[in-house]
Amino acid sequence: MSEGPRFTLDGREIPLVPGQTVIEAADAAGIYIPRLCHKPGLEPFGSCRVCTVKANGRSVAACTYPASPGMIVESDTEEVNAHRKLLLEMLFVEGNHFCMSCEKSGNCELQALGYRFAIAAPQLEFQFPVRDVDASHPDILIDHNRCILCSRCVRASRDLDKKEVFGFVGRGPHKRIAVSSGTRLRDTDADVTDQALDVCPVGALLRKRVGFAVPVGQRLYDKVPIGGAPVVPEAPVAEEGRA
């Protein structure tokens, strides 16, 4: 094994390159830490907290926290996973997710994390918020019902497409993704070839007329969990109700 700085992740010693975040070092070592707003290639944002780990006993976001030599990180533990599961349930009930009629179903990262964490049904109260759909653009649509405010589109449009088509408006429960010029998507310079359209983890930002292209059974997460096989292959999904 090569010499060099290392830290401990779930009992395993893994190497780090100075400047790496915890999630980057884990990815390089082939260890999956669940995440939603983080996407390699985009500037870390640290908003969803699904990547929360305990670093030397403190909860931090693995996608923004720098890895440092000798630190002890816990990720795949009962306590940390319970926290992630609760965050995922909150994301589900705060939006309107009707997976059976969603173009992204089977390829959606939020849904896939629900499956990975064996969430049979969120036990929090469903909010059913009233949100709109912006289908004004000839080739693209935003369905705010499914947006989880991860900002991937904001970062991709700004840093990869050099356009700044997307941004946030409002705060707290009223926070929503908006387009920067004018009020409708058709008034922007958004284009069907924008990389921003490829990064949305859910079915919020979609190209028109390409939905349901892959048959059920062959979609990304139909058979293989997001992040690879979970540690326990048979997950207890139909857990005792908590309500």
Partner: peptide, 13 residues
């Protein structure tokens, strides 16, 4: 026994 389903049987669609 308790209900345990393999990964492929948990689906929201």
């Amino acid at each position: 026994t308790s209900v345990e389903l393999p990964y492929e049987l948990i689906k929201y669609d």
